[in-house]
């Protein structure tokens, strides 16, 4: 049983999130501004915080900094601002993830689960480092057993998808063009190679990312290619 703190000045949003999270079996605490949130974290054994940025009394960013002083529990920011600068600001002050309003409840639950799994695995030291494989953020790839884990949960990939992911993880941080990927994975230069790669990357993103439109790891570098990077560390 995990304790989750939901903090937003909009009470309706808080109760909605409470309903969703409770139906997933979490224990939910609520707060309606930043200072209440910091208090709640201090007093209760909170495992994860879901917090709005724009709040009266004490805003989310300030509260975030205060929480980081006392705990390293995962924090997911809720924000109505969709600009990249706001997201980057949230991530630099120590948030683990963010969700933009208006959000999809299913996505929020998925992100909560993912963060909790990683937090618990890291904290409990249950994680077994694969001997022959690669790890980027929450993505683990084991080349021997041909298994891929996303936040500790196994993902079923087709052999082609596996090969693409392996190639990208091997060259983590580097941008590979669709042609290069095709040459490495399929061999040769096929007709329509670039679109083929694009379709597979799309499928791959749908499998390993929570929100494929805003990937954390498998990034699309438009007009150049694709790369694997740890989007959590900005």
């Amino acid at each position: 049983m995990y304790n989750i703190l939901v903090c937003d000045d909009e009470r309706d949003i808080v109760s909605a999130l409470k309903i969703y999270l409770e139906s997933e079996g979490y224990n939910v605490f609520t707060a309606f501004n930043g200072s209440e949130a910091v208090e709640a974290v201090k007093q209760n054994g909170i495992h994860l915080v879901l917090m709005d940025i724009m709040m009266p009394v004490c805003d989310g960013i300030t509260a975030m900094v205060k929480i980081r002083e006392i705990s390293n529990i995962p924090v997911i920011l809720l924000t109505a601002k969709s600009e990249d600068t706001d997201k980057i600001l949230g991530l630099t002050v120590g948030a683990d993830d963010y969700v933009t309003k208006p959000f999809n409840p299913v996505e929020v639950i998925a992100r909560v689960k993912s963060q909790l799994r990683r937090y618990m695995q890291l904290g409990g030291g249950q994680k077994s480092e694969p001997q022959s494989g690669y790890t980027i953020g929450g993505i683990e790839l084991n080349d021997k057993t041909k298994q891929v884990f996303s936040d500790g949960e196994e993902v079923n990939l087709t052999p082609t998808e596996f090969e693409i992911l392996k190639l990208l993880m091997k060259n983590a941080g580097a941008v590979l063009s669709p042609k290069e990927i095709y040459r490495e994975v399929w061999g040769g230069d096929g007709y329509g190679a670039e679109s083929t790669v694009a379709v597979h990357i799309r499928h791959l993103r749908e499998k390993i990312e929570i929100n494929p439109a805003e990937p954390r790891y498998l990034k699309v570098v438009w007009a150049h290619g694709y790369k694997m990077e740890n989007g959590d560390k900005k």
């Binding site: 063009s177 670039e194 679109s195 694009a198 990357i201 438009w222 007009a223 150049h224």
Partner: peptide, 8 residues
């Protein structure tokens, strides 16, 4: 490249 990515 962008066009093929888009179509993908």
């Amino acid at each position: 490249v962008l066009l093929s990515q888009t179509v993908g």
